[in-house]
């Protein structure tokens, strides 16, 4: 089923809309929620809340492609849960954030003074310079918060190889940010 057909079901307020969305992409959303939260029940709840969010926003929105849109909702709900609960302190999100943040920022204070919009632009610029494999590696690890082992498996490389490549990517990002005048 095409994204436009699923969106059409939401526009029609069809009861099938959520089930079709789940059938088509549910695995991606639950995997993302679980990677972020590292807890089954919370991950399920997060995805259900995200579906409710889609139901409430489509229409009027017509998000195409659909997957990133729903993934963002899942991620935002998960981040909110993490903020509210110390139980998720060692979830996948914090682990991957710390791995990236500890490498590119010289201190927490620097991070506090960041302009997030400027950093977003810089991150997209950096990603545009990477080849496809490295870009997927970076995004899977730091946006989807896959474990190193999982992302290595996904790319058909060893975990050790993935770690080394991620380390290089973090260093390259730090250099890139410096070149672009982003204070790190």
């Amino acid at each position: 089923m095409k994204d436009s057909e699923i969106i059409g079901l939401f526009f029609d307020r069809s009861e099938r809309a959520v089930s079709c969305l789940d059938k088509q992409y549910g695995g991606i959303f639950r995997k993302l929620a679980y990677s972020l939260l590292s807890n089954k029940e919370d991950a399920d709840e997060c995805v259900n809340d995200a579906y409710l969010g889609v139901w409430n926003t489509v229409p009027p929105k017509r998000p195409e492609p659909l997957v990133p849109y729903v993934c963002r909702i899942v991620r935002n709900i998960a981040v909110d849960k993490i903020r509210r609960s110390s139980a998720h302190k060692r979830g996948g999100l914090n682990i991957s954030l710390e791995e990236l943040g500890d490498n590119i920022f010289s201190s927490n204070k620097v991070e506090d003074e960041l302009d997030t919009k400027e950093l977003s632009i810089a991150l997209n610029g950096f990603l545009s310079t990477l080849d496809k494999d490295d870009r997927i590696l970076f995004v899977r690890r730091y946006w989807y918060c896959d474990s190193v082992k999982a992302v290595a498996k996904l790319l058909g490389i060893t975990a050790n190889n993935a770690s080394v490549r991620l380390s290089r990517l973090r260093n390259d990002l730090k250099e890139y940010l410096k070149q672009k005048g982003v204070e790190v």
Partner: peptide, 9 residues
């Protein structure tokens, strides 16, 4: 803030 910036990917 890094998390927020990543959301802008």
């Amino acid at each position: 803030k890094l998390s927020q910036a990543l959301d802008g990917i």
